[in-house]
Every structure is written in structure tokens, then in C-alpha cells.
């Protein structure tokens, strides 16, 4: 790809493509832009006119942000929005670490360690992706709360984690694993066979191959999947709703946001800045790690 001016390298002719892309990029940005503008407007203005009119005679204010971040009580909670952001982090980081960490090892095992039911396990995991999340909420919560009893014997003891942060990130880990394994398997399985076999011939066992070859080569894939996991978990409402028990102590931002949006009527002056605040951290994560996308998630799977 050294040649410059390689117009033929681009399947679509440039001017039209640029135009189409520009239009789509604008369309994709306008709704969010509307939210940004709205979050700086006064309450009366939000309810009476559209946000696009506010450029004619701008009366913007920072009061909305001050209210949700630094003031307590009322519609925003006892300590403002920041504790909810901490909760979101405390749920998301462990869940991403565990699902990607365990997922990568499982993907390696399924791709490179031959054993009898390897295929069945892999297909089984793949099939579990289709299990609707909602159907495992209740049995899983019951399991956390009461353990497993069979014929009066406790087979698995009660885990005292209900209503804690662990009870939120553990389900996230469980629910995320099948997809993580599937995506990472695509990548790991496509690593060059010669490299792997050469290492094996040199006497490296699975632990060494994984640490010295698979792990370093997989960094781009790990990074991109970690980003997706981060975004999905950060943005989840359903799991938090059920497992966090609705307490402010462990509720993530989305739950708080849903409460703000749902129960208080049209308090756009709180909802808009709160929604904006909730997307700041995911955006930072995305922009700081996005260069890995270029190197390629799944790039290896193309043969």
C-alpha cells in the first residue's frame, strides 16, 4: 500500500463516497449534538422551543451541570452524579477484566488444545449466546441468594453478595463470556500454525505458548473486545436493575439516568446533562484505545 494516489485502491469513487460519508456522519451526530445543546439550556427554553432555535439568541447556562454534579437532594440524589459514576466503574472494570481474561484463555484452549469434546463445547458456548438474558435473571438471583439445595443438602452455599457490587459484575462476566470467547476464538484460531508449532517443537508447553506468543499477538484483539465489553457493560440497564437491587449504593449511572428520565416528568434540564455526563467516560475509553481498531479486530480471521 505504498503507492500514493492509488485511486483504484478505493472501490468507490472518491467524491461521491466522501459526500455520502459526510452526510451519514452528520446525520449520526445531530441527535447527540441536540442533547449537548439542550443540556446547556434553561428549563423554560427547553420546554417551549426547539434546541436548534437557541443559536439565534443564545442564553446558555452551566447551572444544569452544577446541579447534577455538585448539588445534593431533590432529583439528582444525595451526592450528585459522581458516586454513580464510581459505581459504574466498580461494576465495569472487574467484569471486563474477568470476561476478557478468562475468555482469551478459553478461546486458546478451544483453538489449540486438542481434547475430545472440544467441538461440542465450542458449539455449545456459541449456542448459549442466543439465550435471552431475561430468562436467566431470576434463577441466577435465586442462586446467589439461596445457594443450591438438593434433597435437603446444601450442594452450594449461599453467596453473601446480593446487593453488592460483586453481584452485578459477576452476572456481567457470565453473560459476556460466550460472545467474548467466540470473537477471540476467531482471532486466536487464525494465528499462524507454523509459529505455534515451532514453539511447541522447541519444547514450550501450553502455558508458555500462551504467555509468550498468544498474549502478545492478541493485544489488538484484546483491546478492541475489551472496549466493546466495557461499553456494553457500562451501558447496561437490565442486569443492574435486577442485581443491584435498586439501591443508590451500587446503582450504576444508567439506572440513575433511567430513574431521572422515567419518574420525574420532563425534567430535561436534569436529564440532558446527566445523559451527557454518562457518556463521557465511555467516549474517553473509546478514543484512547481506538488506534487498536486500525490494527485489527478479527484481522487475522481473513484467510
Amino acid at each position: 500500500m505504498s503507492s500514493k494516489g492509488h485511486a483504484a485502491n478505493r472501490p468507490f469513487t472518491s467524491p461521491i463516497a466522501s459526500m455520502v460519508v459526510t452526510v451519514i456522519a452528520v446525520l449520526w451526530t445531530v441527535p447527540t449534538f441536540g442533547l449537548v445543546v439542550t443540556s446547556f439550556r434553561k428549563k423554560e427554553d427547553i420546554l417551549s422551543t426547539g434546541w436548534w432555535t437557541s443559536f439565534k439568541n443564545p442564553t446558555f447556562t452551566f447551572d444544569n451541570f452544577r446541579a447534577i454534579l455538585f448539588e445534593s437532594g431533590g432529583t439528582v440524589g444525595e451526592q450528585g452524579m459522581i458516586p454513580f459514576a464510581i459505581n459504574s466503574l466498580a461494576i465495569t472494570i472487574p467484569a471486563v477484566l474477568l470476561s476478557v481474561g478468562l475468555g482469551l484463555m478459553a478461546a486458546y484452549a478451544l483453538a489449540w488444545i486438542p481434547f475430545r469434546f472440544s467441538d461440542h463445547v465450542f458449539y455449545g458456548l456459541f449456542a448459549l449466546q442466543g439465550v435471552p438474558l431475561q430468562l436467566s435473571l431470576l434463577p441466577l438471583l435465586t442462586f446467589f441468594a439461596t445457594g443450591v439445595q438438593l434433597f435437603g443438602h446444601t450442594i452450594f452455599p449461599q453467596l453473601h453478595i446480593v446487593g453488592t457490587l460483586a453481584s452485578v459484575w459477576l452476572p456481567h462476566t457470565m453473560f459476556g463470556l460466550p460472545l467474548v470467547i467466540y470473537l477471540l476464538h476467531n482471532f486466536v484460531a487464525a494465528l499462524p500454525r507454523e509459529v505455534m508449532e515451532a514453539a511447541r517443537v522447541d519444547g514450550a508447553n501450553h502455558f508458555e505458548v500462551f504467555r509468550r506468543i498468544v498474549l502478545p499477538l492478541s493485544i489488538p484483539a484484546i483491546a478492541s473486545i475489551a472496549i466493546f465489553q466495557f461499553l456494553w457493560i457500562w451501558n447496561d440497564l437490565l442486569v443492574a436493575l435486577v442485581f443491584a437491587g435498586g439501591t443508590d449504593d451500587v446503582a450504576p449511572l444508567t439506572l440513575h439516568l433511567a430513574n431521572l428520565g422515567g419518574s420525574l416528568g420532563s425534567h430535561w434540564e436534569n436529564v440532558a446533562p446527566a445523559a451527557l455526563f454518562s457518556i463521557i467516560i465511555p467516549l474517553i475509553v473509546f478514543f484512547s484505545l481506538q488506534r487498536y481498531f486500525v490494527r485489527g479486530l478479527l484481522a487475522g480471521s481473513v484467510k
Binding site: 435465586t142 436493575l241 435498586g246 430513574n259
Partner: peptide
């Protein structure tokens, strides 16, 4: 005191779940 507007949703789950 825990307040949530998802009360009707959560209570049965928690009661059924032994929590």
C-alpha cells in the same frame, strides 16, 4: 431505606430469590 421506581419489578424477584 431503599427507594426505587422499579419496585413492582424488583420486589417479587427478590422475594422469590430469597432476598
Amino acid at each position: 431505606y431503599e427507594g426505587t421506581d422499579q419496585f413492582e419489578t424488583l420486589l417479587p424477584v427478590r422475594v422469590k430469590g430469597g432476598n
